[in-house]
């Protein structure tokens, strides 16, 4: 576990020293969510209806955009190769990187999401459900996305390619994430959606680091 904590700490420190990077994904998220009322119109009834979907789709896109930096820098300066050669299990190192990446790019979305929901006139308890669904769902996005990031490492046009690979795999998270808020608004109760979101997160936590480690070995060798 020592190496896990070490790599989380290292990646967080690196991220804090490049603060501009921290904000790009977050501001992308904010801008995308703010664009929808401009395109659709400011009627509060419509906005309430589309809010969960819009916030969640924007979160999907923002966390996908942030994926490119997950391994690219370490790959460019050779650190990644050293990590693959290290005696510690690669999946553990990968998990550490994903956790740090989520803290830097996913957690801000969780914090800002409900604020954006306010712009869409969501009620306070719907905002609470949105917060919980983002908290449960965004780690799964980082975990699944890491596989795509590892597969496309160092490829020409990797950014567009990763969207093609990762977005279809994000669909269940989108459905249950936005579904939780919608079900709550409709008075059906959001528990079942949140449980399923948590279950997807657990499966991703179990399998994604292994798949990512295998993908990194393929990409780096």
């Amino acid at each position: 576990m020592g190496v896990f904590a070490w790599i989380v700490k290292r990646d967080l420190m690196l991220a804090l020293r490049h603060r501009a990077d921290l904000f790009t994904a977050l501001f992308f998220f904010i801008i995308v969510v703010s664009l929808f009322p401009l395109g659709i119109g400011p009627e509060a009834d419509t906005l309430r209806l589309i809010a969960p979907g819009v916030v969640w789709v924007a979160a999907l896109l923002a966390s996908m955009l942030a994926l490119e930096r997950l391994f690219a820098v370490d790959h460019a300066d050779g650190t990644l190769e050293q990590m693959l050669l290290a005696p510690q299990p690669v999946a553990l190192l990968v998990l550490g990187k994903i956790v740090a990446h989520w803290l830097v790019t996913g957690l801000p979305l969780v914090v800002v999401g409900p604020v954006l929901g306010l712009q869409y006139d969501l009620s306070a308890d719907a905002l609470g459900v949105l917060l919980i669904s983002l908290l449960l769902g965004t780690p799964a996005l980082s975990l699944i996305g890491a596989i795509g990031a590892a597969l496309t490492l160092g490829l020409r046009g990797g950014g567009v390619l990763v969207s093609l690979l990762v977005l279809p795999l994000y669909i269940p998270v989108l459905i249950f994430g936005a579904g939780a808020v919608e079900a709550h608004i409709a008075g059906l109760g959001s528990d079942s959606h949140l449980y399923l979101l948590g279950a997807i997160g657990m499966v991703a936590l179990l399998l994604a680091p292994l798949a990512t480690a295998a993908a990194l070995r393929v990409s780096v060798e």
């Binding site: 690979l165 279809p168 795999l169 269940p172 499966v203 399998l207 798949a211």
Partner: peptide, 19 residues
């Protein structure tokens, strides 16, 4: 690797879309 990841996901995607 991508195909195998996809195969694990297909049932999850199918049932999530159905629900």
């Amino acid at each position: 690797l991508l195909v195998l990841v996809g195969v694990v996901n297909i049932p999850i995607i199918y049932y999530s879309v159905e629900w």
